[in-house]
Design a protein around this nucleic acid. Structure first.
Lengths: 137, 137
DNA sequence: ACAAAGTGTTACACTTACCGTAACAATTAT
DNA sequence: ATAATTGTTACGGTAAGTGTAACACTTTGT
């Protein structure tokens, strides 16, 4: 799954939990968002480590939101499921020539990509789960 | 090669052509930017179709810039080498549920990604090959 | 105590994508 | 003719992604 697909899938699962407003097991959630239950558990496990959802084992177990929807924004969801920077962009730094031109160009692009990533992160920080739910209800 | 790597590699090749200011064959350019000559020819071939470089076969053939460096900006380089939108972001649209929530969330993300792409394109349009060369010389 | 229902994680076969290189037709100057 | 070059295709090898199953561990109900 690409980063962007992971993000939208996670938001679907979280929206489902917010709307249902009671613990749901991975099978139900997976059926709702349309992916495999095992795969979904991997995603939700990461969201759990980030304190976004909480999970309980056992017969009455399942997943539920650990915070209110207006306290969850896209940026933290993204960080929870992806270790790399937002929508990672990279350059080819193999075979760098000794003259340094390639290295300088790499740095120029790394700076450009950093700027883009900051903008993306700002945008994602401003969007909460609640604002998304409000749009789909 | 990722989109971003393609872009930086292309800019390296174009910068080399701009600085040398005479036709260069793929072997020389490839050695300068540190990639395979055949692979580079694929990139330059696409840049040629976009009118950014011109190429000549034969013994005295090679590649040279078709426009001045201040008339070439990153956005057109990107469009030349990549058919998809800038730094393509996508959602999972398989197994869409009948309730429509997944579809609505997909649309929300597609809109968000479109906004991000517009910002990236604006940024890339404002950066010319000349401005990059000025920084590396 | 024991069974049932969960999560969290690992493993694995399968497919897909990617990479680097080679090869070759077409083209052009000498 | 010959040599050098582009543009494109093909291909074997390798890496990455996918979907599923499996299983240990935890928790609840009886």
């Amino acid at each position: 799954m690409s980063s962007s697909t992971k993000l939208s899938t996670s938001v679907k699962a979280l929206s489902y939990l917010a709307i249902e407003d009671k613990p749901k097991n991975s099978t139900e959630i997976a059926a709702s968002v349309g992916i495999n239950a095992s795969k979904l558990r991997k995603l939700l496990s990461m969201l759990g480590k980030a304190g976004i959802v909480k999970s309980d084992s056992g017969m009455l177990g399942g997943f539920s939101l650990a915070k209110k929807p207006n306290q969850i924004h896209l940026q933290e969801i993204y960080c929870a499921i992806e270790d790399r920077k937002a929508f990672y962009l990279n350059v080819n730094d193999t075979n760098l020539k000794q003259n340094g031109a390639s290295e300088k160009i790499n740095n120029i692009f790394l700076n450009l990509f950093s700027e883009i990533q900051v903008e993306i992160e700002n945008k994602m920080t401003s969007i909460t789960l609640k604002s998304i739910i409000d749009k789909i209800i």
